[in-house]
Simulated scan of single mutants.
Amino acid sequence: MQQRANGCKGCRESVQITPDKLQRLVDIATRGRAAATDELYAQRMAHCGRCPDLQYETTCRYCGCLVAVKARLLDSVCPCPLFPKW
């Protein structure tokens, strides 16, 4: 996957993460915190998946977070400054 021209200048392909590691990070982040339901999580991920500011299919351009982690946390919000998607 190539870096987008308007993407994060510090990011390279080496920042890509495996699905297993991503799931471990989600599990760690949600320990002791309220997690979004599977339905809400799926809705949030669908919005992020269509977002032109999703980088490497995992990372939000605006906040630098892994969207799978951010979307799973119940109290999270979309960081898009113009029009939050969720």
Rank of each mutant, 00 (worst) to 15 (best):
Q2D: 11
V69R: 04
I28R: 12
L40T: 12
W86G: 08
Q3L: 08
A68M: 13
C65R: 10
L25A: 07
Q16F: 01
L74P: 04
R44N: 10
C60K: 05
A46T: 12
Y56E: 02
V67F: 04
R4P: 04
V77Y: 12
L73T: 05
S76E: 13
G64L: 04
K85R: 15
T37S: 15
Q55R: 08
L73W: 07
C48H: 00
D27A: 06
L74V: 13
G64D: 01
P79M: 10
G10L: 08
W86N: 01
C65F: 05
G32T: 13
R72K: 15
V15Q: 05
Y41G: 02
C8T: 04
R44T: 10
A34P: 02
Q55G: 00
Q16H: 02
R4Q: 11
T37V: 06
E39F: 08
Q3S: 04
P52W: 01
C65W: 09
P81V: 03
L25E: 11
Y62K: 05
L73G: 03
L73A: 07
V26K: 14
A36P: 07
K70A: 11
C63T: 07
A34D: 14
R31W: 02
A5N: 08
G10Y: 09
R24D: 12
V67M: 07
N6W: 12
L54A: 02
G49I: 01
A71M: 04
R50M: 09
A35S: 15
F83M: 14
P84C: 05
G10T: 06
C63I: 03
R24W: 02
E57A: 02
K21G: 03
D53Q: 06
C8N: 10
Q3D: 03
Q23N: 08
R44E: 07
R33P: 03
L73Q: 13
I28S: 13
L74S: 14
C51I: 10
M1T: 06
E57L: 00
V77P: 00
G32P: 12
